[in-house]
Design a protein around this nucleic acid. Structure first.
Lengths: 292, 292
DNA sequence: TTATTTTTGTAAGTTACTTACATTTTAAGT
DNA sequence: ACTTAAAATGTAAGTAACTTACAAAAATAA
């Protein structure tokens, strides 16, 4: 029973590393999945503006034996995807295609992440977070720093003292002020930044629990008490934003939801207070997201 | 899928009404679904002990145009079936369920958003952003402020002067410094905050283009030159973080990807520079996400 | 600039699907 | 039981589609 290999993900994975003309084929396929799954090699070649041989080589580049195999795998992937995305998409305009492509990549990456997530790590993490007195999120570089901020934003709403810092020096100083019962939550897609590694070492030294959300097997993962590890291939197409940050944020959501469930009373009270303050400000009493 | 015709069901439906030899084919197909989905017409003919022409006629009998079409439909049906049967959803632990729930909600919301997105607004927005000299993202409250930061983070990488601000007073002052060719991008899930409304009014007054990502029909949407509007129901379960912020970020991704495509040269050069600076810092030359 | 490697399209080659037609089988009528 | 017409089937020719070899063009390195 050979498993259904998701050919679409495979194309996305290699996206950006194709040769010029093959990239044209990749773009076409990703932007018009449904059409391509029904077109012949010749039709795809014509639509992409390349020769049939290039289409064939494209198929081989992504690991298929030839177009025949690719065609069937694509049809399967599309059929399975449609199960998720529901009805047929009429990708008429360029904008529609863009949306489909970006959202599709995100959904794919979410699935990939789910398959990689270690349940035990998640369980340990939610447990530690739910009982933490103070949580310090740290991250460097635009992306991870924002994920850290979002983490603080989520947990702060649960009535847990949460903060986020992007400054390497401040991070180290902060780490040295932590104590048992506190959590240092390091976020990095590469798991390399010295600032984070140092901070984790310092925090552990003072007895704080260190938690990380980072790349599988990275230095950061190794040094942390609890590591949530992911191996997400970065999109090689430089014109396309990578979905990994959003997946990181989604995981923060998971942790926040998990922690909230473990401390229902505490959370409820704090949310009530926050909501009250918001209503006082806007006069709007309808149920709305807490904070804008 | 263009039509959700489950070919397996169709074979079962006609089962017993086939001619003698075609029935042999039907029996074979139904008993060895997976094998048949990968076999050629010739292989199936041999396995069933009939001629290839009979296999072809069998395909036509069940409504396909020929073997080609049958082969693809069978492959799709098998792939979808496998999703249900051999599927990876073994939600054993509590953590797994949590992940499934949060990710599932996100995927659902993405789907909803896709159906609501106005292609024209997206097209107009990407066009304006691609040609902007300066983009100022503004948002208030933890969530939207972070989306704004993420927006600045994305566009800054495209070589466009991008900044984000969460301070209401600063936002108003900033708005008054904008000029034609500049963009004020206001982000708010409610579309109510006075800071944003004021800022948009001020920016328009000075000739800047105002863009918003907000709730359908909100004051903010009405006042903006271009409004990307969404009506996403907030999850009432207070223990569950709402998916709307992530969807907002996903839309920022869409816009960034669209804008990048319209200015390939510009983007390429800036990304090259940023990447070079990162390599100098870490010594790692492998293709990696730009910024952590 | 030149040499080398990589990429690409053309065209020939091969496979596999499709169709026409003759043969066989089946079934109904005599 | 025989005849005949209709249906079913297989053979073989036909055709469309995929694959591969090779030479030209482009990109890269020296």
């Amino acid at each position: 029973m050979n498993r259904v290999i998701d050919i679409i993900s495979r194309v996305r994975q290699i996206d950006g590393q194709f040769s010029k003309r093959e990239q044209l084929v990749a773009d076409l396929v990703l932007s018009q999945l449904e059409d391509c799954s029904q077109w012949s090699q010749h039709e795809i070649a014509e639509a992409a503006g390349v020769s049939v041989a290039t289409v064939n080589r494209f198929c081989q580049s992504i690991g298929c034996e030839g177009f025949r195999e690719f065609q069937i795998m694509l049809a399967q992937s599309v059929a399975v995807s449609m199960q998720y995305l529901g009805g047929p998409s009429r990708d008429s305009s360029e904008s529609d295609q863009l949306v489909t492509q970006v959202f599709g990549a995100l959904v794919d990456t979410l699935h990939l992440a789910r398959s990689q997530l270690n349940s035990d790590a998640i369980a340990e993490a939610t447990d530690a977070l739910a009982n933490a007195r103070r949580i310090a999120f740290i991250g460097v570089g635009g992306g991870s720093a924002n994920v850290a901020r979002e983490g603080a934003n989520r947990f702060f709403r649960l009535g847990i003292l949460a903060e986020a810092h992007a400054d390497g020096y401040f991070q180290r100083m902060l780490a040295s002020t932590l104590e048992p019962g506190d959590i240092l939550f390091a976020i990095s897609s590469s798991g390399q930044p010295t600032e984070l590694l140092d901070s984790v070492d310092i925090a552990r030294q003072y007895g704080a629990t260190t938690l990380s959300l980072t790349r599988t097997g990275s230095s950061l993962a190794e040094r942390s008490d609890i590591a949530i590890e992911l191996a997400i291939p970065e999109d090689q197409d430089i014109y396309k934003p990578s979905a990994s940050r959003l997946v990181f944020m989604a995981i923060i959501d998971v942790l926040a939801a998990g922690a909230a469930r473990k401390r229902p009373e505490r959370v409820k009270e704090y949310l009530r207070r926050i909501r009250t303050s918001m209503i006082a400000l806007s006069g709007d009493t309808s149920p709305k997201p807490i904070g804008d």
